[in-house]
Computed example of a mutant assay.
Amino acid sequence: MIQVTDDIHIDEQTIQEDFIRASGPGGQNVNKVSTAVQLRFDVRQAGLPDPVRQRLEQLAGKRLTEEGVLILDARRFRSQERNREDALERLLNLIRKAAQPPTPRRKTRPPQVVKERRLDSKRHRGKIKKMRRINPHIEE
């Protein structure tokens, strides 16, 4: 069991790792060794609390398949082990972020001074436009 937060644990069996060849730096090593990691995590079968699962699916975006599998690619490092650690850490950070409930929005009202300032500027613009008329003293 991997401990994500104090009350959230995920089973290692829900994480599947595939190793693929990475592009980028590494010289001949890139052509011979599969160092990149493709981590697959089944969000719906992981046993996460419902609100956390929903927020995780929202955060995952395009990385989530229609079946509910989160796919993370890690190919930053040259070694397979560091890419494995990187992919797992990114998954845990994503779950930790989903575990934090969003702060509710507090309704605020604009101050009276701001309303008055806005109305004054509107009146001022109206006066400027009125002065552009041929005979500004005639009301239309």
Rank of each mutant, 00 (worst) to 15 (best):
R132T: 13
L119Y: 13
A60E: 03
G126L: 10
I138K: 15
L48E: 03
R109H: 09
R21N: 06
T108Y: 08
R133E: 10
P49I: 08
G26E: 02
V113C: 08
L72A: 09
D120G: 13
V69S: 02
S79F: 02
Q112K: 15
R75F: 04
I134D: 10
R55M: 09
H9Q: 14
G47E: 02
F41W: 06
S79L: 05
P110K: 14
V4R: 05
D7R: 11
A87R: 06
R117I: 04
H9V: 10
R44C: 03
R117N: 06
L94Q: 01
Q100R: 14
Q45V: 05
R55C: 05
V4P: 02
L72R: 08
K32S: 07
R75M: 01
E66Q: 15
D6S: 15
A22M: 07
E17R: 15
R76F: 01
L64S: 04
D11P: 05
N29A: 15
R82F: 01
R40S: 13
K32H: 10
P102V: 09
K130T: 13
H124K: 15
T108E: 12
T108K: 14
F19W: 14
K97Q: 12
R132P: 05
L92K: 14
R123Y: 12
I10E: 02
L92M: 12
Q13L: 11
M1Q: 09
A87E: 00
S121R: 15
G68F: 01
L72F: 05
R132C: 11
P25M: 09
K129H: 12
G26Q: 02
N83K: 04
L56W: 10
V52D: 03
I95W: 00
R75I: 00
